[in-house]
């Protein structure tokens, strides 16, 4: 176990270092959530005037939604890095070494978590700047960021596993495109839960993006229902563990195919 942790950390360091060498990637990663927040905020500004909409302003409501969406998207695209390493033979090199298999996945997920954390802080900071208020305070924000990281980790693990099975860039791109937007919009990330059609509300109950949004928003209210927060956070933790396990299993399928 401790070897797996050490190996994960070595892998995390490699991924972080490689990212740090790509200034364009950094710029886009940091600016994109900002654009989402400003764009969605402007487009849906009138939402706050809808009768029955509870939040005072739409930014209050939207900011947590963008934090979650950003984490989901970062996770969904994580498989692209696996494809790159597969193509360069880097993964094969690790697979014939004593490196722990789970570390090859968790190393990526920790890196993803760190990037998500930075993105979340930027979105929250900007949200505050343009007038969003979060009664739940620092604790509430920590819950939001933590749950988003678990969501990103789950989708990231799935994306990594998918990359190992498909071994093709196109497949990962298609799968991410197919899944990410529907997941985001079948949740209350942008619209209050009781204002969307009933069928979306039903589907959303099984949507991990919705679990994250619920936990985050609840934790940010004046007096959160911690039971709800805890139940959603636990679901996310279990999901993340299960997806990581699946992704690690995908190495076997990969090795059977070569």
């Amino acid at each position: 176990m401790s070897t797996t942790l050490t190996h994960s950390w070595f892998m995390t360091m490699r991924h972080l270092r490689n990212l740090a060498r790509q200034p364009w990637w950094i710029a886009i990663t940091l600016v994109q959530p900002v654009i989402w927040l400003l764009l969605f905020g402007a487009v849906f500004k009138a939402t706050a005037d809808i009768p029955g909409f509870a939040a005072d302003s739409y930014v209050d409501f939207l900011t947590p939604g963008i934090v979650v969406m950003t984490a989901a998207f970062a996770g969904g695209w994580a498989g692209m890095g696996v494809i790159e390493d597969l193509n360069r033979g880097v993964i094969d090199r690790f697979l014939v070494s004593p490196v722990r298999r789970p570390a090859l996945i968790t190393g990526r997920l920790v890196q993803l978590g760190i990037v998500s954390l930075i993105q979340s802080l930027i979105v929250i900071g900007l949200g505050l700047l343009i007038g969003a208020r979060f009664p739940g305070g620092v604790v509430g924000l920590a819950v939001l960021v933590g749950c988003s990281a678990l969501l990103g980790g789950s989708l990231g693990a799935l994306s990594n596993g998918m990359a190992l099975l498909a071994r093709k860039e196109e497949t990962v791109i298609a799968a991410s495109n197919f899944v990410l937007l529907p997941l985001t919009f079948l949740s209350s990330a942008f619209m209050q839960r009781d204002l969307v059609p009933g069928w979306i509300q039903s589907v959303a109950r099984y949507n991990p993006v919705e679990w994250t949004v619920q936990a985050g928003r609840e934790a940010l209210t004046v007096s959160p229902d911690w039971g709800l927060v805890l139940s959603r956070a636990s679901l996310l933790a279990v999901l993340c563990a299960a997806c990581t396990w699946l992704a690690t299993r995908a190495f076997r399928s990969y090795q059977r195919s070569i």
């Binding site: 190996h7 070595f10 490699r14 270092r17 490689n18 060498r21 790509q22 390493d85 360069r88 033979g89 880097v90 094969d92 090199r93 690790f94 014939v96 070494s97 004593p98 490196v99």
Partner: peptide
Amino acid sequence: IGLVAQRSGVDLEGTGRENLTLQGQVYG
């Protein structure tokens, strides 16, 4: 065993020293 695969295994984004260091870390 050590392997030099037909299709290399170098991490092109890392330096020579970083590649070697990580490989060594993996072997303890």
